[in-house]
Amino acid sequence: MFNKTTRPVWIILIFLTAAIAACLFSIATGAVMISLRDIVDVVLHHDLPGMNRDIIWNIRLPRTLVAMLVGANLAVSGALLQGVMRNPLADPHLIGVSSGAGLFGIFLLVVVPQYDHFLTPAAFIGATLAAFIIYLLSWKDGVSPLRIVLAGVAVSAFLGSGISAMLTFYSDRVHGALIFMVGGLAAKSWPDLSTILPYSIIGLLLAVAGSKQMNIMMLGDSNARNLGTRVELSRLLITATATLLAASAVSIAGLLGFVGLIIPHIARLLIGGDYRILIPASALLGAAVLTICDTLARIMFSPIELPVGIIMGVLGAPFFLYLLRRKQV
């Protein structure tokens, strides 16, 4: 049943089933438990009156869909960055891309909150500038994956200091930025879904389109050049795609760490390193894991709701240490 040819297909189907199950679990679970039949009725006939309709359609369904897109975006972004940098610890949060998006996001939230509707494009600009600075600092007769990671860590620390400075000078507005700093999905609704959806579609399609190029890049720069690949251009385009996905997720969910680190590793262990399969697998698994974690964050200490970033930190930190113990860096 799970031979070498069909195993990836079965794994993809399992991840798809897990994503659907996580979606239904999130919609059904909360202060008010809702049956699967009621969920189907409301989704198919959303004009039905009643409390269940309001809970599903106005609260849980949009939040769940946003969680799935954020999880997919961060997971695929992490998979791309780990591949292009050939470093298992690369992810948007650790190498500075998310910090760039976070710096611009925090600036809007605490300095000019009247312009917070520009959060998504501002986060993308911040992430793009951070990626550009990282490239600039790591360039020396070309760009090596190791220099990119080291430059990313330094830039992340610098941008983190900028975020801390803003929060210090505008301490009276820190509460509004707290969830953004930790990473959370509380009160996400249909406008948030409509904001992230186009970025997700474009970014994921670009990632799938570049999967063949990613496989070539994994052979090493010399082999990729021998096969006719323009290595620096390919690395730049792949990083730009990862930046787009990470920035859109950060603008909605805040500085949510470890998703881009954990998910690609789990997917790679199960299906291998072929990016034609790894990208959709990471997207589905990322959607499933973040949705489950967000549901747990809602219900574990009800009526108090934890930011999902805390749950991901509890899961991600031990995994990070596990990678270090395996001496993969």
Rank of each mutant, 00 (worst) to 15 (best):
L159G: 05
V149M: 10
I95S: 04
V112P: 00
L89E: 08
D141R: 15
A154K: 01
L94V: 15
A123F: 03
A130M: 03
Y135K: 12
I148Q: 03
G30R: 06
L150H: 11
I34S: 10
I133N: 03
V110N: 08
R53H: 15
V84G: 06
M51S: 13
L150N: 08
L136C: 11
Q82D: 03
P88K: 08
M85V: 11
L48Q: 14
G83P: 01
V40F: 12
M85Q: 09
S99Y: 12
T29S: 15
V110C: 09
A122D: 06
M85T: 15
N58V: 06
A79C: 09
L109R: 04
G105S: 11
V111H: 07
S77Q: 03
A131L: 14
K140T: 12
F118V: 09
S156Q: 13
V153F: 11
A79Q: 09
A151R: 08
V155K: 04
G83C: 04
A67S: 15
V143M: 15
I95K: 02
I34F: 04
L89N: 06
D41I: 03
L65T: 02
A122E: 07
M68A: 10
G50N: 02
N58K: 12
R147I: 05
Q82R: 10
L44P: 00
V143Q: 15
S138E: 06
V32D: 08
A123C: 15
D38S: 13
R63K: 10
F104E: 05
V43K: 05
F132W: 13
S98N: 15
V66D: 07
N87P: 07
V84S: 06
S138M: 10
P121K: 09
H45M: 08
P88W: 01
G30K: 06
H117Q: 13
F124Q: 07
L136G: 14
V153R: 10
Q82T: 06
L136I: 11
G102R: 02
A151K: 06
D116V: 14
H45C: 02
G30E: 09
L65M: 08
D38N: 05
A28L: 01
Y115A: 14
N58Q: 14
W57Y: 12
L159W: 06
V76R: 05
L109E: 05
L119P: 07
N73T: 01
W139I: 11
G96N: 05
L108A: 09
G96R: 01
A122S: 15
M85H: 09
L61I: 00
G126L: 04
S99I: 01
A72D: 08
L65A: 02
F132N: 09
D47Q: 11
M85E: 05
G83I: 04
G30C: 01
A130I: 04
P62A: 01
M85F: 15
V76Q: 04
M85D: 03
I148Y: 07
A157E: 10
M68L: 09
G50A: 02
K140Y: 13
N87V: 05
V110M: 07
L74D: 08
V143A: 14
R37K: 14
G96D: 03
I39D: 01
A131K: 07
V97G: 09
L159A: 00
N58E: 12
R53C: 12
V111R: 06
